[in-house]
């Protein structure tokens, strides 16, 4: 604990830096993945190909991507942009599947009702598809956020500072408290982001909080799709 006391300023600065490096790819990934997920859901013939190609990106180990990306896009390995772009790629890879599943889980009866009462497809997306897919989108975003925060630490191995610095520095100098502090702060940042996203969801989507109504029509359809969507999301990680 004496180490923490003596280095509190450094821990704070690294935590802020870490948070900033995490938030950027989470936001970029979400903004890119939701339209991609929509396209994957909407155009059935595209779905398989699009999701497999994006899924392949996720199989690339992070340290290898940090090395491969700079010569491809012409930036320095040490640049923060290297980390942000690489982690945005992972965010997109994870989030697109969640988004496609979220849109697919919207009850088709509700969607057809919207069409029947004359909604244009643009208006239907904003008034029906997005609000109903919202809770599942947010659940996916929470998974993305937590894994991004932990991946940021790997950047230190190619020289991009974050809380990961406490791991390498702590190992080299043999200070257990330093590494432990790094782990605790990484988990704390992940939990804080997770909480912020969950709270944002409660504020933006009060309908997701309500207990499920008794469904009198087609009960099997909605329950089945939501159950399957959930297992797919769990297994994807």
């Amino acid at each position: 604990m004496t180490w923490v006391g003596a280095n509190i300023a450094q821990v704070w600065n690294l935590s802020v830096l870490h948070l900033w490096l995490s938030v950027q790819p989470i936001v970029i990934g979400f903004v890119i993945a939701v339209p991609l997920g929509l396209v994957a859901w909407r155009y059935r013939w595209l779905r398989g190909g699009l999701l497999s190609v994006i899924g392949l990106l996720y199989t690339i180990p992070s340290l290898a991507l940090f090395v491969l990306l700079p010569p491809v896009i012409g930036i320095s390995v040490l640049a923060d942009a290297n980390l942000v772009i690489a982690l945005s790629i992972y965010a997109v890879a994870l989030m697109t599947r969640f988004a496609a599943d979220a849109f697919a889980a919207v009850d088709p009866v509700v969607r057809r009702s919207a069409v029947a009462i004359g909604y244009s497809s643009w208006r239907r997306f904003w008034a029906v598809d997005l609000p109903l897919a919202g809770p599942a989108l947010l659940a996916g975003l929470r998974v993305v956020a937590v894994s991004t925060v932990s991946l940021v630490t790997v950047g230190i191995l190619v020289g991009i500072d974050s809380l990961g610095l406490l791991f390498t520095d702590g190992l080299q100098r043999g200070i257990l408290a330093e590494i432990a502090t790094g782990i605790v702060m990484t988990v704390v940042i992940a939990l804080v982001l997770d909480l912020v996203i969950a709270l944002a969801g409660r504020l933006l989507m009060p309908w997701a909080r309500r207990p499920p109504r008794r469904r009198r029509w087609l009960p099997w359809r909605s329950s089945r799709t939501s159950a399957r969507g959930a297992t797919a999301a769990e297994v994807a990680e």
Binding site: T153, V154, G164, G170, L171, L176, I179, A180, I183, T186
Partner: peptide, 15 residues
């Protein structure tokens, strides 16, 4: 998922 693998690896190696 929240645990940083590099942190886990370094702390266990040190231990």
């Amino acid at each position: 998922r929240a645990l940083p693998s590099l942190g886990l690896l370094t702390i266990l190696t040190l231990l």
